[in-house]
Design a protein around this nucleic acid. Structure first.
Lengths: 225, 225
DNA sequence: GTATTTATATGACATATATCATATTTTAAG
DNA sequence: CTTAAAATATGATATATGTCATATAAATAC
């Protein structure tokens, strides 16, 4: 059982408000788990009863729409927490979480977290701020979906992916999404996504090599987003 | 200066957790205001530094998109609070609030609310749950925008409007939105919205009389949503 | 290494939706 | 009441995007 004190999640998430004593308690009650790429952490409708700390790796949060397609609502990466919303709302989770890479996650049972809410005001405020940030992001997202073209959303998403997850030594996007996943982030058909990537490629905005995507003209991409 | 004890906002919002003493303090520091239809309560980017209680009337929360169109993200009605998110995030407001009808609102300064956060845990939890509910709604909204057709979104929105705001004696929707506003809720061009309403009318799903919209075949509308 | 599956790519076409033009109706202003 | 302005309505057309078919390339299994 590893300690929580030095954990990256503690450093970047709401958990930074916890004191030593609380961290010791946390380390005792948490359970760690390795999640392989493609594995499901939890599924829409499940009762999770706690939160997950993402220690390493990235996962997608998806929601099944009525037409049977999965939509990727958000990507969650190391340092972040998972499942806070449904724990607070005391509802089944609204989204499914699926690993995009091999991951390390810890699970903290609800009872433990609720105790922090009662005793540590700073922690409560941190959680509240995080969720408020998520809400703002989500509202902005709604407007983008409603008002921007697929092309604009693709440009925007490519920039977001580079800004958030960085690039490899060869400058290609570090995070590996299939065309299908990229399409389900921007809310379009896979073929449309592929076609637009191809267009961007021809225009010199990006470069496609095998599965790798490299952004070549970021100012132009930003301008069109 | 009216009391807060019997206020509808207190009854339905997070404020229900406040005790008598806190309500007295609230009544002392709040300011009341009448807002005429069309008037702006606050505008995107403003610093609000407090929250609004909607005592009567309905307003729209809008965000200006890059193409210059306003998108209606949410409608807020009597009994609800306004501006919680930005107060907690300590950011300018992300959305503009504009009255759709004559309204009565009260303003409570941030300092007062922050005091409740510190001392009244139930209040904090209520606020947190409200925002979590908003987040779920917003995420669902993103998926709808991304995956549903305009027709589906219109059907869904009409049902939402009736369920949320009710109908007049003649069965027409109580809330009065212009076609332009309806279009900006579902994320489409005004003409497209008008055309689809016209289609729905011809199909007997709804009835259009002057500006009034009456839902005629709700099961069918639900099925297509 | 070959076979099989899966992902990517592209063409042809259908459909949904936006845009522009214009008419009609309703609301507001004088 | 009359006129002007705004909202609603509808047609014609352009454009974006989805769908289906098929080809090629890459990944995985055997």
């Amino acid at each position: 059982m590893s300690k929580c004190e030095q954990c990256i999640v503690r450093e970047f998430s709401s958990l930074k408000a916890l004191n030593k004593e609380e961290l010791v308690k946390l380390a005792e009650c948490k359970t760690s788990r390795l999640v392989k790429k493609g594995e499901v952490i939890f599924e829409e409708g499940e009762n999770v009863n706690g939160i997950f700390c993402v220690k390493d790796g990235v996962c997608k949060l998806t929601k099944l729409s009525q037409n049977g397609k999965d939509h990727i609502v958000k990507l969650v990466t190391k340092g972040e927490l998972l499942g806070q919303r449904s724990m607070i709302s005391e509802e089944p989770v609204n989204l499914s979480a699926v690993a995009l890479e091999d991951m390390q996650v810890c699970f903290i049972p609800k009872s433990e977290i609720m105790g922090f809410f009662d005793k540590n005001n700073q922690f409560s405020m941190n959680v509240m701020r995080t969720i408020c940030g998520d809400l703002k992001e989500s509202d902005d997202h709604v407007v983008n979906m409603a008002q921007k073209t697929v092309k604009q959303r693709l440009a925007e998403t490519l920039i977001y992916l580079q800004d958030t997850f960085g690039k490899n030594e060869d400058d290609s996007l570090k995070i590996q999404l299939t065309r299908d996943e990229l399409a389900s982030m921007i809310g379009t058909a896979t073929e449309s996504c592929i076609r637009l990537l191809s267009d961007f490629n021809k225009l010199g905005l990006i470069e496609l090599k095998a599965k790798k995507i490299t952004l070549k003209n970021i100012p132009q991409l930003k301008k069109m987003a």
